[in-house]
Design a protein around this nucleic acid. Structure first.
Lengths: 131, 131
DNA sequence: CAGCATCCTTATTGATACTG
DNA sequence: CAGTATCAATAAGGATGCTG
């Protein structure tokens, strides 16, 4: 049951190549039309933008407001429930910045040293059986 | 540059089918051997456990301590840097619980109602050109 | 304008067998 | 015990064209 708390599920909900960027846009700009999102995220395709938005909508993170008119107009925005993600995103963002600096000091050049503890055991049985 | 802050990158680091579970185990149990993790996560294969651990290690989130002995013994634990993820995980966990309840009230049965705003425009041009 | 349908490519995950 | 290597299956993402 609680093999890993809710943590895994949240990652699944937030995961997806473009979801973070979409949420970021909506947080910054409030309400945006489909085409505005496309302009803001030039590399995403229409298909992906649609599917990622639909998933976010399914989880009640973004709101989809359809204007019945020609030409069509659809506006997206964070729902109230989606806005409750703010502390999560803030925490991730803060950690991300610290992490980046930290990694630079580590991976600036090389791998982190392997920590090898040579106990060269005599308390443990060498039991590699031959075939 | 800052199209989406650090948010996307953090998701990439934390993303992976088993990483959350692994981190959770290490947070709860402190130090664990490879085989202990396997027992705790019965569905993960050795290959996946290895690769996910290696990725976490690369980002200095988990520590790998090798005992040079026969039979081999390797212990994993959260690094100090990895422990700094605690606020992030807590935030996600809290949100996850609230989210779960929230979703039950929504998706208990049906899709959320489409919010359709019928403005039936007259301020916008109907410009669907015929072929 | 805001999609959906189809087909295709790449990435992630998994099964299985072998090794120091 | 703690892996690696190889191959197979699945899932995620992308290109392109069509539609109301």
């Amino acid at each position: 049951m609680s093999e890993n708390c809710e943590f895994t599920k949240v990652l699944e909900i937030l995961g997806g190549k473009w979801k973070p960027s979409i949420m970021y846009q909506l947080f910054m700009n409030g309400t945006m039309r489909f085409s505005e999102l496309q302009r803001a995220l030039p590399e995403i395709t229409k298909k992906m933008l649609t599917t990622q938005l639909r998933e976010l909508e399914y989880h009640d993170i973004v709101n989809r407001k359809i204007y019945m008119q020609i030409p069509p107009k659809v506006e997206y925005s964070m729902t109230e429930h989606g806005s409750s993600l703010t502390p999560v995103l803030m925490a991730m963002n803060d950690w991300g910045k610290a992490h980046l600096e930290h990694l630079h000091s580590l991976h600036g050049e090389r791998q982190p040293e392997q920590e090898v503890v040579s106990e060269n055991v005599n308390n443990d049985i060498v039991e590699i059986e031959a075939k």
